[in-house]
Amino acid sequence: MEQKNTMHEERKTGHRLWKARLSLWWKAACVNARLFREARIGMIGLVIIITFGIFGAAYPWWVGRDTGVYDPVVGFDDTIIRHPSPPSLRHPLGTDMVGRDILSQMMSSTRTAFVMGLVAATFTASIATMVGAVAAYYGGFIDTVFMRTANLLMLFPFLAFIPVLSAMMEITFLRFAVIIGLLSGFGGSTLIVKSKALGVVNKPYIEAAKVAGRSNIHIIRRHVIPNILSLSFLYMMFSVQGAIFSEAILSWLGFLHIRMSWGIMLYSASRAGYLVGPQLSRYWWMWVPAGVGISLLCAAFYLVGRGLDPIVNPRLRRR
């Protein structure tokens, strides 16, 4: 009877605990949202990202009207005799030298950029969180191995490394995203996340959990990782930016096999000789949209990262 009662009690408090956790979580989310809104810089970034999201989502509608004309890769408009043609009603951003619509290329590239950025960032954040937590918690040999790897990878000029890989296999955009995610996950991000995790590992509650007989895996999962997750999320933003930027650079140098992206747009324009000398200003629509797209989206993720900064590092808050 006694035992049954305590079990009942436990279940009740367990139920309440769940409720209390939810309300705490909600409160924290509200505070964070307020902090984020206060730093206007982050809101600007968020608005830009959402705008790009809508822009990318409009792709099926824009291209679906006439796939023959508006397809970003094989489209051709035969009503116009000379390509590249300047912006017109039919093609709001003009066409490129083989008669493809620049606006639909832009929309297609936005989708590529989003998927690639998210895949890369997810890989980076999850690897950096796990490696950082494990290295900080166990220390010693594991720590040394991971930190040496991170140092070596940071040293590695991956912009030069991917061309080497591209000679070995076809680098599609998903493979590229995974490679970038792995490189930056085991590289620089790990160092930063680990230094934060070190602070967490030395907190008294970790000691308490150890005394209470919790297993190492449980402690890492329930006590270490939740406390460094916010920092990983911040680095996810910077990782998206890094992925988009390096994709653009490598495509622009002609090393990647991607169907359509901002980098590819610049690459084809530059290969066809539209990015030299006076052509730059005469055929501006060949490179301005893609350049603006890369710059704006990268800037937006950077701004969101900066806006998240005071939430993740309470030290930076205005006092």
Partner: peptide, 22 residues
């Protein structure tokens, strides 16, 4: 500063070349 920082470097370089050199 952030505007210049976030510009895509090759494009920014092209703009600089176009303006200052050409």
């Amino acid at each position: 500063g952030v505007f210049l920082y976030s510009l895509f470097l090759p494009m920014y370089a092209l703009l600089v070349i176009w303006f200052f050199a050409l």
